[in-house]
Write a protein that binds this DNA or RNA. Sequence first.
DNA 1: TCACGCATGTAACAGGTTACATGATTGT
DNA 2: ACAATCATGTAACCTGTTACATGCGTGA
Lengths: 195, 195
Amino acid sequence: MALEHALLVALSEKPGSGLELTRRFERSFGYFWHATHQQIYRVLGRLVDAGELDVEVVAQTGRPDKKVYRVNEAGQRALADWLATSTPLEPLRSEVAVKMRGASFGDRAAVLAGLREHLDDHRVRLEHYQRLAAAYGLDPGSDLPGAARHLEGATLDQYLVLRGGIRLEEFWIGWITDYLDAHSTNPEPDPGSTR
Amino acid sequence: MALEHALLVALSEKPGSGLELTRRFERSFGYFWHATHQQIYRVLGRLVDAGELDVEVVAQTGRPDKKVYRVNEAGQRALADWLATSTPLEPLRSEVAVKMRGASFGDRAAVLAGLREHLDDHRVRLEHYQRLAAAYGLDPGSDLPGAARHLEGATLDQYLVLRGGIRLEEFWIGWITDYLDAHSTNPEPDPGSTR
DNA sequence: TCACGCATGTAACAGGTTACATGATTGT
DNA sequence: ACAATCATGTAACCTGTTACATGCGTGA
């Protein structure tokens, strides 16, 4: 439903090959839209069939040829149309939440241990994003508006989405910390036989 | 991959029929795991085949019969096993983020209007969750720990997950507000022909 | 009689995941 | 010779979504 559009946005920012796009989806794009290379190749093919992308085969020295994809006018129109449609509230699906809610029907200590790992992962990600944000040349701690006055257009949007990624990590850290705190100040007897 | 487990948790809390579960997934469960009735019926059937649920047909007066599902011992074991496995970082997929990032390749004003609607929806949800949280009998503004001392076990978990739902709505509201602010204090000339 | 709510499903499809496959070049 | 990286894909499968289908009972 929407990898199509994510690819159109990515290729509008800068044309590229399948593998280059895969790399981008592992980095900057990846923190708000995940996709594997298999999926990307498949959808690129579909978009070419639909006439929304042009392909150019580029020969390289010392490497296999690559196909560089570029959004054409039909693609620009399709993207603009989609951008103007309304987005339904995204239904949530969090495995972590299911585990939190179900913890008393299993070994709570194991669930808590898993959450602590998760917490570390999110802290690592947060730091990574904060480094990325710092590269935009403004104080990462400062709040908008004001701080981002010197950015504009697509660059400003990239920065604002990255801020969203940072906020999201902060959300996870806050939530998990809350949960862990509540269960360490409130330890239950007999973990594991609570059912 | 995990509706199975969400159903096992829901049925561990309280046995119920397909339609009752559907209602629960529209309410309390729905804010962290979404599922439609078609999916629920299909998976319930699968869980019965796998021997993890028992079914009891209950006759009702003035209504069609219903099938009440209950987690049996095999189901309890399956759930406990799953709870002890580690959860991979959930890959993110946000259509809204794609639109934010792609706004300069279409009609930015339309994207901003869509975001304002979204913002309202999230505010409504937040209020709804806050009302739910208030029903747990403690000050919704107060922070853990301490406030939730009087809750325990499955009820405490339910409350903590609900707090996560509240935090998540606050995240959305913060992010979208950020984006809107940045683009209203920083309006661009020629919205629509920016490409 | 008609609409609505309860209650349970089937079927077709779209999208995403996992595993496998191929071939070239560069470096050890 | 072997592993690693670049580069592009296919196939099978699982999950989730959308549309459709059925039958009973209640109240207007």
